[in-house]
């Protein structure tokens, strides 16, 4: 079952993203794009070279961060390959 290559567990998909860019969409108005370094069973994530986007009434507020541990509790969606937006 698990060794059927056509079936990919969600955790295996995330594991394949390690080392590459990933787009994290949070519950609420927040998104992050960064390089995935690792994750655990709660999908807490270690990200590097992160850009954080906070969507506010005045527009997007951007914060750059070198390295973060992101609490998995508020993660909604993970998109491998990063954001389609330039910056």
């Amino acid at each position: 079952m698990a060794n059927n290559p056509s079936q990919l567990l969600p955790s295996e998909l995330i594991d394949r993203c390690i080392g590459s860019k990933i787009w994290v969409i949070m519950k609420g108005d927040k998104e992050l794009v960064g390089t995935l370094r690792g994750f655990d069973v709660y999908v807490n994530m270690v990200l590097e070279d992160v850009t954080e986007y906070e969507i506010t009434a005045e527009g997007r507020r951007i914060t750059k961060l070198d390295q973060i541990l992101l609490n998995g509790n508020n993660i909604a969606i993970l998109v491998p390959g990063g954001s389609p937006d330039p910056e």
Partner: peptide, 8 residues
């Protein structure tokens, strides 16, 4: 280099 939350 992979880095789990524990490593971090």
């Amino acid at each position: 280099t992979t880095k789990t939350p524990g490593d971090f």
